[in-house]
C-alpha cells in the first residue's frame, strides 16, 4: 500500500503520466473518425483514472473501476459500430453541432473546476497507510450504509427491466414483424381500422425510410 501522506517521486511521476494519458485520450475520443477507436480511447481514459485510484490507495475501487469500465466499453463498442455511420472509420467525418457553444461550456466548466481546485479549502486528512480499506468498504456496504447499497441494487434491477422493455422487439402488443416495434391491434379486426392517429403500414418497400410511422399508441 502506498503512503498517501508522503508520496515518493515514483508516485508523483506516475500520477502525472496517468493524468496526462487520461485527459489526452479523453480528448481524442471526440476527435477520432473510428467508432471502435473512440470507444477504446474512452476505455484508456478510464483505465488511467483507475490506475490513479490505485495510486491513491483505493485497492478495490481502482481494480473495480478497471474491470467495470472494460466490460462497459466493450458493450459500448458494439453499439457504437451498430448505430454510427462510417463504423470502420475509413472516411474522415465531422458530426458535431453547436461546436462553439459546446467548447465554451466545456472551458467554463474547466475554469470553474480550476477555481474550486486552487482556491477551494479542503480539510487535510490524508489516508493513513495500512488502513484496511477493502474490509472497511465491505462492512460499510453491508452495515451502516446497507440501505443505500440496497437502493442502488434496486435501481440496477429497475434498469435491467427498463432496458429490456425499451429495447425488446416484443412489446405490450405482442411480437413485432420487423424491426419497427410491435403495433397496436386494429379496432375492428375485420375492417382493419386503426385507432385515431395510428397509420398502419401499407407498403413493405420502406423506401422512404419512415418505417416507424405505424408505431403508435405508446406516446
Amino acid at each position: 500500500m502506498i503512503d498517501v501522506s508522503s508520496p515518493s517521486v515514483f508516485v508523483h511521476v506516475s500520477f502525472w503520466v496517468f493524468a496526462a494519458a487520461a485527459v489526452l485520450s479523453g480528448w481524442r475520443v471526440f476527435r477520432t473518425d473510428s467508432m471502435v477507436r473512440a470507444t477504446f480511447l474512452l476505455l484508456v481514459s478510464f483505465l488511467n483514472v483507475g490506475a490513479i485510484l490505485l495510486l491513491l490507495g483505493g485497492a478495490y475501487l481502482g481494480v473495480a473501476l478497471l474491470f467495470m469500465m472494460t466490460v462497459e466499453m466493450t458493450v459500448m463498442a458494439i453499439f457504437m459500430v451498430a448505430f454510427m455511420m462510417n463504423p470502420a472509420g475509413l472516411n474522415p467525418m465531422v458530426m458535431v453541432h453547436q461546436p462553439r457553444l459546446a467548447a465554451a461550456a466545456g472551458w467554463v466548466l474547466f475554469g470553474g473546476g480550476i477555481v474550486v481546485a486552487v482556491w477551494g479549502r479542503f480539510p487535510d486528512r490524508p489516508l493513513e497507510p495500512g488502513r484496511p480499506v477493502i474490509v472497511e468498504l465491505g462492512t460499510e456496504l453491508m452495515g451502516r450504509s446497507m440501505l443505500i447499497f440496497e437502493s442502488a441494487a434496486v435501481a440496477l434491477v429497475a434498469t435491467m427491466i427498463g432496458s429490456v422493455v425499451l429495447s425488446s422487439r416484443r412489446s405490450r402488443y405482442g411480437e413485432a414483424a420487423g424491426d419497427d416495434g410491435s403495433l397496436p391491434p386494429p379496432l375492428d379486426p375485420v375492417l382493419g381500422t386503426y385507432p385515431t392517429g395510428v397509420v398502419p403500414e401499407t407498403s413493405t418497400d420502406g423506401g422512404d425510410g419512415h418505417g416507424g410511422d405505424g408505431h403508435g399508441g405508446m406516446h
Partner: peptide, 22 residues
C-alpha cells in the same frame, strides 16, 4: 482536482457538441 476538472470540461464539450446520441 485540476485533472478532474479537465475531464469534466472535455466530457461536457463532447456531450454538447456531438450529434450522435451514442
Amino acid at each position: 482536482l485540476i485533472v478532474a476538472a479537465a475531464l469534466l470540461g472535455l466530457g461536457l464539450w463532447g456531450a454538447l457538441a456531438q450529434q450522435s446520441i451514442v
